Deep mutational scan, measured.
Amino acid sequence: AVCQRCQARFSPAERIVNSNGELYHEHCFVCAQCFRPFPEGLFYEFEGRKYCEHDFQML
């Protein structure tokens, strides 16, 4: 399997985020606008991209 964002493979010891069947490295699972991790894992999706609450409100 490969990361949805960076397309790199996962190492066996690595923590992986699964979002609706899409797999991400922990450091790749970030807001599409500000590139920060999601507070408490909370995000909003718009047109296939994931956003933090602040950036989602700015759309």
Score class of each variant (00 low, 15 high):
residue 47 E to Q: 07
residue 21 G to T: 05
residue 50 K to G: 06
residue 50 K to I: 07
residue 32 A to Q: 14
residue 20 N to L: 08
residue 52 C to G: 01
residue 31 C to T: 00
residue 3 C to R: 00
residue 13 A to G: 07
residue 54 H to T: 15
residue 43 F to S: 09
residue 3 C to L: 01
residue 16 I to W: 08
residue 19 S to R: 14
residue 16 I to P: 09
residue 5 R to K: 13
residue 18 N to G: 08
residue 39 P to K: 10
residue 13 A to T: 13
residue 26 E to I: 10
residue 7 Q to M: 13
residue 47 E to Y: 03
residue 3 C to P: 00
residue 4 Q to R: 10
residue 57 Q to A: 10
residue 3 C to T: 00
residue 6 C to W: 01
residue 15 R to V: 09
residue 16 I to L: 11
residue 7 Q to Y: 09
residue 48 G to K: 10
residue 31 C to M: 01
residue 51 Y to G: 00
residue 31 C to F: 00
residue 57 Q to P: 04
residue 51 Y to R: 03
residue 16 I to F: 12
residue 38 F to H: 01
residue 1 A to E: 15
residue 38 F to Q: 02
residue 43 F to V: 08
residue 58 M to K: 13
residue 39 P to F: 02
residue 3 C to Q: 00
residue 40 E to Y: 07
residue 17 V to W: 03
residue 41 G to F: 03
residue 9 R to K: 15
residue 54 H to C: 14
residue 28 C to M: 03
residue 24 Y to N: 03
residue 34 C to H: 15
residue 54 H to F: 12
residue 40 E to S: 11
residue 5 R to H: 14
residue 47 E to N: 04
residue 11 S to Y: 07
residue 18 N to V: 05
residue 32 A to C: 04
residue 58 M to P: 10
residue 23 L to E: 07
residue 8 A to N: 11
residue 32 A to D: 11
residue 46 F to G: 03
residue 53 E to H: 14
residue 1 A to Y: 05
residue 8 A to Y: 11
residue 15 R to W: 02
residue 20 N to K: 15
residue 41 G to R: 10
residue 55 D to W: 01
residue 4 Q to K: 12
residue 19 S to L: 08
residue 22 E to F: 15
residue 37 P to C: 07
residue 50 K to W: 07
residue 31 C to G: 01
residue 10 F to S: 03
residue 44 Y to P: 00
residue 56 F to I: 10
residue 31 C to H: 03
residue 6 C to M: 04
residue 40 E to R: 13
residue 38 F to A: 05
residue 17 V to M: 06
residue 31 C to D: 02
residue 55 D to Q: 01
residue 10 F to E: 02
residue 6 C to K: 03
residue 8 A to V: 14
residue 28 C to N: 00
residue 4 Q to N: 15
residue 27 H to G: 05
residue 37 P to L: 04
residue 11 S to N: 09
residue 15 R to Y: 08
residue 35 F to G: 15
residue 12 P to C: 15
residue 34 C to M: 03
residue 19 S to P: 05
residue 11 S to E: 13
residue 33 Q to D: 04
residue 33 Q to R: 10
residue 8 A to C: 13
residue 58 M to T: 15
residue 6 C to L: 00
residue 58 M to V: 12
residue 6 C to A: 01
residue 26 E to F: 05
residue 56 F to C: 03
residue 7 Q to A: 13
residue 32 A to T: 12
residue 1 A to P: 01
residue 2 V to F: 05
residue 43 F to Y: 13
residue 50 K to A: 07
residue 53 E to M: 05
residue 11 S to P: 14
residue 59 L to W: 04
residue 6 C to E: 00
residue 6 C to I: 00
residue 44 Y to A: 04
residue 19 S to I: 08
residue 50 K to Y: 09
residue 39 P to V: 11
residue 12 P to Y: 09
residue 10 F to K: 02
residue 43 F to H: 07
residue 14 E to V: 07
residue 29 F to C: 12
residue 13 A to R: 07
residue 44 Y to V: 09
residue 27 H to Q: 15
residue 52 C to H: 03
residue 7 Q to D: 02
residue 15 R to Q: 11
